[in-house]
């Protein structure tokens, strides 16, 4: 991390750089739970799950929904690479539930199809959780 106070956080999707800001600390939705990052965190590369990215700036908290991807923490910045970044209020609960139903009905016949099904289940469940 840089000598400036706070954490520099950059969120990039394949379409564009969605977010480039500085905050006091942030919480990442990892594949197996949440992970907090404070200034000066050791370098890390990790896999993200589906869930909320929280940026804390002077007591205020800003939340975003993250659709899987990766995070790279370097000395300078935190880079979040994800397919999609949404505001929690942009998530439609009804369509997420429909996705969940559709994923549940799929009968996976191969290991790859099973993994794909698990992914869509996790994504749909995370969306429903966030939309509440």
């Amino acid at each position: 991390m840089s000598s400036e106070s706070g954490v520099h956080c950059v969120v990039v999707t394949p379409e564009k750089t969605e977010l480039d800001s500085r905050c006091d600390s942030l919480i990442l939705p990892m594949y197996d739970g949440e992970l907090g990052v404070l200034p000066g965190r050791a370098p890390m590369v990790g896999r993200l799950g589906f869930g909320l990215l929280k940026l804390k700036t002077s007591g205020k908290e800003e939340t975003w929904y993250v659709d899987g991807g990766f995070v790279q923490v370097t000395r300078e910045s935190v880079y979040v690479l994800t397919d999609r970044l949404l505001r929690p209020n942009q998530i439609d609960r009804a369509s997420a539930e429909a996705d969940l139903q559709k994923a549940l009905e799929v009968k996976p016949l191969s290991a790859e199809a099973y993994a794909a099904r698990e992914r869509s289940l996790a994504a749909a469940r995370a969306k429903i959780r966030v939309a509440k």
Binding site: M30, Y31, L35, A42, M44, V45, G46, R47, R75
Partner: peptide
């Protein structure tokens, strides 16, 4: 040297 921690 950046010794990255990899998760998982």
């Amino acid at each position: 040297r950046d010794d990255y921690e990899f998760l998982p």
